[in-house]
Design a protein around this nucleic acid. Sequence first.
DNA 1: GTGGTCTAGACCACA
DNA 2: GTGGTCTAGACCACG
Lengths: 129, 129, 129, 129
Amino acid sequence: MIFNLDLESEVPIYQQIVDAIIYGIATRQLKPGEPLPSVRSLSADIGINMHTVNKAYQILKNDGFVLIHRQKGVMVNTELPGVEPSFLEKLHADLKNLTAEAICRGLSREALVEQVQKIYQQMMDERRG
Amino acid sequence: MIFNLDLESEVPIYQQIVDAIIYGIATRQLKPGEPLPSVRSLSADIGINMHTVNKAYQILKNDGFVLIHRQKGVMVNTELPGVEPSFLEKLHADLKNLTAEAICRGLSREALVEQVQKIYQQMMDERRG
Amino acid sequence: MIFNLDLESEVPIYQQIVDAIIYGIATRQLKPGEPLPSVRSLSADIGINMHTVNKAYQILKNDGFVLIHRQKGVMVNTELPGVEPSFLEKLHADLKNLTAEAICRGLSREALVEQVQKIYQQMMDERRG
Amino acid sequence: MIFNLDLESEVPIYQQIVDAIIYGIATRQLKPGEPLPSVRSLSADIGINMHTVNKAYQILKNDGFVLIHRQKGVMVNTELPGVEPSFLEKLHADLKNLTAEAICRGLSREALVEQVQKIYQQMMDERRG
DNA sequence: GTGGTCTAGACCACA
DNA sequence: GTGGTCTAGACCACG
């Protein structure tokens, strides 16, 4: 599992960690039941504050992507969350904003859809690769 | 032009204004050359501070969506920005994160693509409506 | 005398008028002693406020570029101002800022000087053209 | 890094700060990667408001001269911006106005060019000094 | 009346 | 402690 963090980014570090782990789960670099590094070791590896890693893990736990056991540490949830209304809401809101800007800039529907197709496909390909 | 702002949202108010105006341009509720409300009147209407509206307008100006005229006020740019690399980067990064979570949650490619298609179509329909 | 005003520019209109007239004098499109259009006619031609034109003329008068007679109207001064300390100060300050940014951006001294040479030459050429 | 600001000047304070920092970068008083004072400390030092300093930093960030890190603060960008078209436009427009006035006032091309040469040279000398 | 600038001071997110 | 956001209210330049 590789974390490609950009400490200069406007995106908070904890959010980047969340995104990276969800990406890892999507591409099955991280398989359900698989343990994640401890808060302590991960923060040391990346060279960031423990609180930051902890915050990321808490968010992933609340969303149902990981389980946190006091003893066994953190692992990918064996029962990943489904397509919940709150996710659909966020998805819709984000897609709406992206699509609106795309339309303004003259990006065709085909080009936009192809982008989505390609990104989806690439992640599915990585699952087998 | 209706602004449906959530003052309690985590999304900054100025960002919500930006999004609303881009949406308005995409759906042609706001046509190129059309004037936008003045900083003062809009802030009074929404019940927020002048500077917050101004910040939104400045962002839209920097991105090329509006022109700001010291005396005539703010209007939609007649030459809207095109598909610039920076936009494609943002689009790709955002779509990647959304897609990763969608895959984790078991949303099929067809369902995701259909969402995008639908959102795009709805906005184009609003143009004529 | 052609005024190429950009009403959308951040540069105040009166300043653009001042710049245009100084440019006209430099290239001898406007010769010493030559009358300038009246405040009223110029403002009508350009389609702007009389006060704006008047402000431009007052600045030009204060700097010694034009003479304003109550009856005869406005004309280019037959004794143009020389290289005064205040001008040298402004010139130095402006050049310093431009040069600093040029250096930061990696523009070579030769390229910068060539720019100045070219601009100077073009204006002198227009004198004869 | 010394800021020689004129609070009474027509030039906005935030612009003077921008100019001073660009000058500092040009003369390598500020080296790439070097941290700049925090918004709060600088504003306290100069005796002006936080937001004014922040505005200057935002402009420098947008132009690519500095990086803003939510926690680490502000630092000079290690990859300074290059000679972009927008800069060349500004450079040309400003030089044109300065040159026009110089010609009107009888400043010779040699004298003007020498000024530029001298200013450029002085800044490069300061780099080593 | 428009936006631009600046101030004073508050609370929050991040690390 | 850092910058980000937002408020309330002032004065100015412009036309």
